[in-house]
């Protein structure tokens, strides 16, 4: 499989499933069809998509699924009645929706990759509303939270989707009770975090490492 066509295939999946979920899906699928095929994909895609490189490293260490500390998230969202999620990670979103029946959820319909948000949202059976960046402040309040996915955490910084920077400025920060970062990678990324941006951990009120 040529690099350009594999990269296009990965982008198609990552845009709507999330970088981490798409990486796990690709590795599991390739390994199931042909032993060793996933190694070629880690090499080929890992150079272009650092999340794949990080997931590939975890795969080599024996991990077979994403890191998902749902209890940690629920504890930090205790008392929150509405939350807006920035960025897509399907496995984590599915878990959050299933575990939080009373929580009003919105998803910011912006992505650095091509994504059909109508299809993304249809997967949640009406439980998650579409939120444009212009509508973000309508979701603010004393019991509101902003949630985003973190791609590896070290002692002081993390990587997030660039959508986070577009949405969260000094004005937005004070209008939400909780700014929650939810780590989806088992280890920090080994290569330069292309597609993502680095932010300081103190940009969040809560982090689920």
């Amino acid at each position: 499989m040529s690099d350009p066509s594999l990269a296009m295939a990965f982008s198609a999946a990552a845009g709507e499933l999330g970088m981490s979920a798409a990486s796990w899906l690709f590795l599991r699928t390739l390994a199931a069809v042909e032993a060793g095929a996933e190694e070629a994909a880690i090499e080929s895609l890992g150079a272009q998509f650092p999340v794949m490189a990080a997931v590939g490293a975890a795969w080599r260490e024996g991990h077979r699924g994403p890191r998902c500390d749902l209890e940690g998230v629920r504890a930090r969202l205790d008392g929150v009645t509405r939350a807006v999620v920035l960025g897509v990670e399907s496995a984590h979103l599915d878990a959050l929706v299933a575990a939080s029946p009373g929580l009003e959820l919105g998803l910011v319909t912006e992505s650095p990759l091509e994504a059909d948000f109508e299809r993304i949202l249809a997967n949640f059976g009406g439980r998650v509303a579409a939120v444009s960046l212009a509508e973000l402040q309508r979701w603010s309040g004393a019991t509101s939270a902003l949630v985003t996915f973190l791609y590896g955490v070290d002692s002081h910084a993390t990587q997030v989707s660039p959508i986070w920077l577009r949405a969260v400025g000094d004005d937005t920060r004070t209008q939400f009770r909780t700014l929650l970062g939810w780590n989806v990678l088992p280890a920090p990324m080994p290569v330069y975090p292309r597609w993502l941006v680095e932010v300081a951990l103190d940009a969040f009120t809560d982090v689920v490492p």
Binding site: A9, A12, L17, A22, L25, D94, N123
Partner: peptide
């Protein structure tokens, strides 16, 4: 075979809850 499996699994993941 790898392409076909990736296609089917990706498509199913994209429509998993629909």
């Amino acid at each position: 075979a790898l392409r076909a499996a990736l296609t089917v699994n990706t498509l199913e993941a994209l429509h998993r809850g629909i």
